[in-house]
Amino acid sequence: MTKHDVRKRFIELGAAVFAVALPLGLQASDPQDIIKYRQAVMKANGGHLAAAGAIIQGKVDEHQGQLAEHVRAVQAINKDIPALFPDGSDLGETKALEAVWNKRADFEKRAKDTREKSEALAKAVSGGDNKIIVARLKELQDACKACHKDFRKEEKKK
């Protein structure tokens, strides 16, 4: 084997390792990073919904123009909540209960319900009738709470 061959082999091997490792690497993010990511997304969820709530309740009328933005954000975030909770992201600094993974069908039902309720709120907002908006907001809040009731704890028992 010439020196050149060795080098070529080396590069090939490297490429192969890289080719195998890349998708693996994508799948296996550090669980704690997945947890942090989803908490960040959930915080945004809360932030936008709290902001929308304040506008809907007439607490900050000067921001009325932002309502549609906040509600669109909520709708986007709630498109696929279960994707934030992949297998293996149950251990670590998380408030998600084991039930998220053990009772997956129930969890997904709650997520679907929330998605639908956030779509309904967005629709109501474009309709512009405040009474309907208030009613849809309440329903969405109920949907968020229903999932937290069964799947989120103040702090997980260690």
Partner: peptide, 9 residues
Amino acid sequence: MMPDGDFAG
């Protein structure tokens, strides 16, 4: 709903 938009669990 809490002030930060988190929900009672």
